[in-house]
Design a protein around this nucleic acid. Structure first.
Lengths: 262, 262
DNA sequence: CGGCTATTTGACGAATCTCAAAGGGAGTGG
DNA sequence: CCACTCCCTTTGAGATTCGTCAAATAGCCG
C-alpha cells in the first residue's frame, strides 16, 4: 500500500536501494480526507509538504474577489505543496476531489534533511520542480491563447498522459471526479460555459461522455485540436549523469554514492 | 560588471565566499543580443542554461496554430531556461526584448556539477525553481480568473515588485520595453484590446502613461484592483537552517561547509 | 417522497476578437 | 530638408465568445 515508487523522485535519477529506503521513511503520518476536505489552506504556515498516495487533489489559488483558479489537479504519486517551501505562508489551497484521499505528511525539516543528504535525490527533486514549471507554462499558454474547447481538450489529454504514465492499462476512458464547476475553474471559464464546452467537444466526436466518464475517442484529433505539444521528460538526463560521474570521481568512491543502481 | 549578486542563488540561502566564487566561474561565455534576437528556440536541444546580466528577455511558448504566450518576462539576474533541464528539447523560446541583452551561458553539465557539489547551493536552486512555480501559478490565476484590466494591473505590479527588489531607487515609474503586441501576449489578449485596456487603466487614474513609460500612480489602489496577493518569499527559511545544522553535525565540520556565512 | 447537489437549457448582456484603416514617430535615402 | 518606409499605436464597427441570471431537469441519498 505504501508503494515507494509512487513518490516520483526516481523519475529523473536512478536511485540506490538506500536512497529509496530513505524516501520510504520520510512521512511521519498518513492522513485520510473525504471529498471537499481541505488539506491545506492558502495562508497557512508552511511546516510540511505532502505526498499523494490515493485519490485526486485540487491545488488552487483564490483571487481577492473570491474567484478560484485550480492551477493543478494532482494524481496519486504527486508531491503536494512543495512550491510553498519558498514562502512563509502557503500560496495554494489543497482540496480533496475524490471521496477518499490519502496523503503522507512530511515535515519541512525532514524533507530538507533528505534533500541535503543526497545530491542525487536533490537533483531529482529539483527536476521534479522544473517539470511542474513546464506543466504550468503549458496550462498558461492554453488558458491565455486558446478557446474554451481547446483548453478542455488539452486538459483531458494532460490528465490522460499522466494517468497513462502511472497505470498499466492503455486507458482511453477517464473517470473524472471533478464537477463541472471544478472543471470550469481549471479551464478559467464558468460552469455554465463548461457544460456547453463539454457538449461541443462531444458533438465534434473527439470525445464521448457517460456521466463523468469521458472517453477520448480520437486521441490524435484531440492533440491536433488542442495545439499543446506532448512533453517528453528526460529520465536520467545525460548532462546530469556526466556531472554525477565527475562528482563521484572528485569525492572518491564513498559508500553511499557508489553503489550500483537499483 | 559581472556582478555576482545578480545571480540570485543567494536569495534563499546565505552563501559562503567559496560558494559565491564557484558561481562566478559558472559561465563559459558572455553573449550579446539585440532586440528580437532569439536566444533559444522552442525545440532546441537543451545543452545549456543562461543567466541574464543586462536587458529584458521574453520566455514564451507557441501553440500549434502559432499563437504565442509569453509565460515570463525576465529581468536582469534571472536564470533563463532552467525549466527545460527536465526535457531533451526546450519547451520555451527566449527572445530579447531590449536593444541590448547580455547573458552568461552555462553548459548543463557545469550547472549539474555545481548543483551536486554544494547541498546548500542546490537548496537555493531548488527554492528558486519553486519561486518560479509560485509566480506562474499567480499568473495563471490572473489570466484564468480576472478581466483584461486586472491582468494588466497585476502584471505591472509584478514587474514593479521585481524591479524594486533589485534596484535601489523607490521607482514608481517603469519603462516597459514591450510593444503592445508583446504586452498582449503576456496578458492573453489581442494587441488591439491591450491598447484599449491600457487606456482604461489610465482613465481610472491608477496609472499614467507617457510613451512606454508607465507610472503607477496609486499603488495600493492597483493592488486592491488586481486581486493578486504580494508574495513574501522566505530568505533562509527556518526549516532549511535546521536541516543544514543537522546535516553539518552529521557530516562533522568539513572545511567547505562549516565556514561562517558571508 | 423530500431535500440536496449537479447538470442542462434559454435569453440576454458584456467582454473580447476580427478586420480595416487612420495617425504617429523614427530612421533612411535622395 | 523632404519623401518614404516601417513599425507601433490608436480608433471604429461589427462578429463571436463567454458571462450572468434564472429556471428546469436529473441523480443521489436518506
Amino acid at each position: 500500500m505504501g508503494n515507494l515508487s509512487l513518490h516520483r523522485f526516481g523519475q529523473f535519477v536512478r536511485l540506490t536501494k538506500s536512497e529509496s529506503d530513505a524516501i520510504g521513511r520520510l512521512g511521519i503520518e498518513r492522513r485520510r480526507f473525504k471529498r471537499h476536505d481541505v488539506i491545506r489552506s492558502q495562508g497557512d504556515p508552511v511546516r510540511e509538504i505532502f505526498f499523494l498516495i490515493e485519490g485526486w487533489v485540487a491545488c488552487s489559488i483564490e483571487s481577492a474577489n473570491g474567484a478560484r483558479q485550480i492551477v493543478k489537479v494532482h494524481l496519486p504519486g504527486d508531491g503536494l505543496g512543495g512550491q510553498s517551501l519558498a514562502l512563509a505562508e502557503a500560496a495554494e489551497s489543497l482540496c480533496a476531489l475524490t471521496s477518499v484521499v490519502v496523503v503522507d505528511v512530511v515535515p519541512a525539516e525532514r524533507f530538507g534533511e533528505l534533500f541535503l543528504s543526497s545530491p542525487k535525490l536533490a537533483a531529482g527533486m529539483f527536476l521534479g520542480a522544473q517539470q511542474e514549471r513546464i506543466w504550468l507554462m503549458d496550462r498558461l499558454m492554453s488558458v491565455g491563447q486558446t478557446s474554451a474547447v481547446q483548453r478542455l481538450a488539452s486538459f483531458l489529454l494532460s490528465i490522460h498522459d499522466r494517468l497513462s504514465a502511472v497505470q498499466e492499462e492503455p486507458l482511453d476512458s477517464i473517470r473524472l471526479p471533478l464537477s463541472q464547476e471544478e472543471l470550469a475553474s481549471v479551464l478559467g471559464i464558468t460552469h455554465v460555459h463548461a457544460n456547453r464546452t463539454l457538449m461541443d467537444l462531444e458533438r465534434t466526436g473527439l470525445i464521448s461522455r457517460e456521466g463523468r466518464v469521458i472517453t477520448l475517442v480520437d486521441m490524435e484529433g484531440l492533440r491536433d485540436f488542442a495545439g499543446v505539444p506532448k512533453r517528453q521528460f528526460q529520465t536520467d538526463p545525460p548532462w546530469l549523469q556526466e556531472a554525477l560521474r565527475r562528482h563521484r570521481r572528485r569525492k572518491g568512491a564513498s559508500s553511499e554514492e557508489s553503489g550500483p543502481q537499483s
